[in-house]
Every structure is written in C-alpha cells, then in structure tokens.
Design a binder for these strands. Structure first.
Ligand SMILES: [Mn+2]
Ligand SMILES: [Mn+2]
Ligand SMILES: [Zn+2]
Ligand SMILES: [Zn+2]
Lengths: 157, 157
DNA sequence: ATATAAATGAAAATCATTTTCAATAACACT
DNA sequence: AGTGTTATTGAAAATGATTTTCATTTATAT
C-alpha cells in the first residue's frame, strides 16, 4: 500500500519504473491534473493547477514531465493554433474513448468528437497499412482535426 | 501584358486585387518560391530563397505575407513538430493534387501521399457534414497526418 | 542509514514570431 | 507620365513559449 498514491491509477508507478524512470511527486501531481479534466490544458495551465497543491513545483518541471509523458505515450500533445502546446491524457478520465478534434479558427475552441470514429479508425487502419508498406514507414500515431467556425463565432459575425 | 509577372500564374494579381490587397514584389517573389518547390518550407527557408533575387525583402515581410496567403487560402500552414511552421501552396506546382502527410517523429522528414485520398476525402466529406450539423460548426478545412518512423530512422535504430 | 544518479527549480538563454514606426511603393486618378 | 493616398515594407526591438544550465534535492538500491 503506497501511501501517496490515492488519486490516480497506481499502475502509473509501475509504468514509470518499467521504463527506468522514477515516479516522483511532481510527476504524480501532473498526471493527477490531467486525469481530472476533459479540457486541453497548456503547460502553464497545468503548472497553475499543480501549484495549488504543490506550490514548489516549477514550470520547468512541468515542461520536462510533459515531454516525458508524451514520449512514454501516456499523453498526447496538440497544436491547435493558439501559439502554445496543449496536452491531453492519451487514455482520458475513466478510459475515455479515442477521439478527434474540431477546432474553431476564430476563438480556438476545441471540441472532442467521436462521431464517425469507428469508420475513421477503420479507414485509418487500412491507410496506415498501405502507407507502411509503400513508404516503409512504421506508423505509430495519427492526427485528424477539422477546422472551421464554431457555433458562437459563425453567428457573431 | 504586365511586365514583372512572367513566372507565376497571373491570376494571383487578380486574386489579390479582388480582396483589396496590392500585389507587390515581395508577395510575388514569395509565391514564386512556393510554386517552385514540392518541399515544405519554413518562413526562414522562404526568406533565404527570396533573398537570392530580392536581397532587400525582409523576414518580417515574409511572415506577414505568409499569414496573408494562409488567410486568403492560397497557402497551407503546418506544424510538423520541429518548432517552426511550414508552408505549402494549397494548389501545388501544376495543380498538384490534394494530399496528406506522413511525418517522421525522429528526423522530421515529411512525405506527401495521395494513396487512399479518395476514400479519405469521401469519408471526410461525410464526417464534415455530420459534425457541421451536430455541433453547428462551419467546417472549412481538415488536417490528417500520420506519425511514425521513416525508412531510414527505423533501420538506423 | 547511506550512496548514487536521476530529478528538480530558479534563473538565464534561446529563438520563432510579432510589434513598432518611420520610410517606401502600388495604384487610382489626373 | 505625374501626383496623392494609403497599404505595405524593413530594421530594430519586443514578446513569449520553451529549453538550457547548474547547483541542490530526492527516489531508491544497497
Ligand atoms: Mn480532446
Ligand atoms: Mn505536402
Ligand atoms: Zn469560435
Ligand atoms: Zn526519419
């Protein structure tokens, strides 16, 4: 019974150790923040959130940890066009499903959607296979985003 | 018979004027560079290329022009993860076809592909329709990228 | 408890992109 | 072709997200 790990999935600890990394307080805290939201947080967002509980965790550590989490495949990093990277747990709260994004080019709102996801994923799978063979690429990931004007922005102008 | 416009599509001029913009030497030069390559150039790449012919065109103007071209829909802006934006004519040299990208997460190589593009575009069309209706988004664009290890990087470890 | 190397935090550095502002040039009109 | 208006430009400075540096701290194997 590890004392500190009350909130998040305890398998995180093993996942870190398995990769030869230490499971530290800041890392736990950052994962806790990410696992407690459906939003797409920036490094600074996460820094502020962590800061409430652990005021001495620095922004540098947040950046370093996020880079590590992305590298480990626990977190996805996105560019939605607002000049800062956004992060999301690759397996969302309570194992939220794989999804893609709708991005408003005016206000930068981001909407998760899972509609058509099965068809998309099926086609993506075939495409990945075809591309792997043709270009000898080892494909590990994909990105799909739709851009446009959100409800509010299309009406207000 | 406009004197300067020998290289590029003369309709660019009209396109600019139609939007109320002036068609200037730097703008022409930047479009010429973009229309003469299949690569995905950064602002600095374009700056250097333009500089060979017009040494007094500044990097600032390159950035401003690219922003304008993206806004006009003549150019696409991409983030392939190497910390700088990359640009591509939306209608490539001799009307190259709509395509998507394969990105190497190790060396940042980018490969254009058009395989499966018809199926993809068909599904994207349906998805766009469905999403527009459901979220009341006016969708204008989409992005599809596959990430992985390229031929070279997967072999060289 | 101790040793060791990984991880951290504060401050400084980096660097792509943006802003400022005076000078220039596109083009509508003679 | 010349002129006036105003968008556009270029140099320099500013911005701001992210990275680097380096001395200190901490997780964990012993
Ligand atoms: Mn999401
Ligand atoms: Mn391309
Ligand atoms: Zn919006
Ligand atoms: Zn590669």
């Amino acid at each position: 019974m590890r004392s500190r790990h009350m909130g998040g999935p305890p398998w995180w600890h093993g996942r870190f150790r398995g990769c030869g990394y230490r499971f530290t307080v800041p890392r736990q805290a950052i994962l806790d923040v990410l696992s407690g939201t459906l939003k797409h947080l920036s490094a600074e967002d996460i820094y502020f959130a962590v800061h409430k509980t652990y005021p001495n965790v620095g922004l540098t550590t947040v950046y370093r940890t996020l880079e590590l989490l992305v590298h480990m495949g626990l977190v996805f990093k996105f560019d939605f066009g607002d000049g800062r990277a956004r992060y999301e747990l690759s397996e969302g709260p309570k194992g939220a499903r794989h999804h893609h994004h709708l991005v408003c080019t005016s206000c930068n709102r981001v909407v998760d959607y899972t509609d058509f996801i099965d068809e998309e994923v099926e086609l993506l799978g075939r495409t990945e296979k075809g591309l792997s063979d043709k270009f000898n690429f080892k494909i590990t990931n994909h990105l799909i985003q739709f851009y446009g004007l959100c409800d509010k922005c299309r009406n207000s102008q």
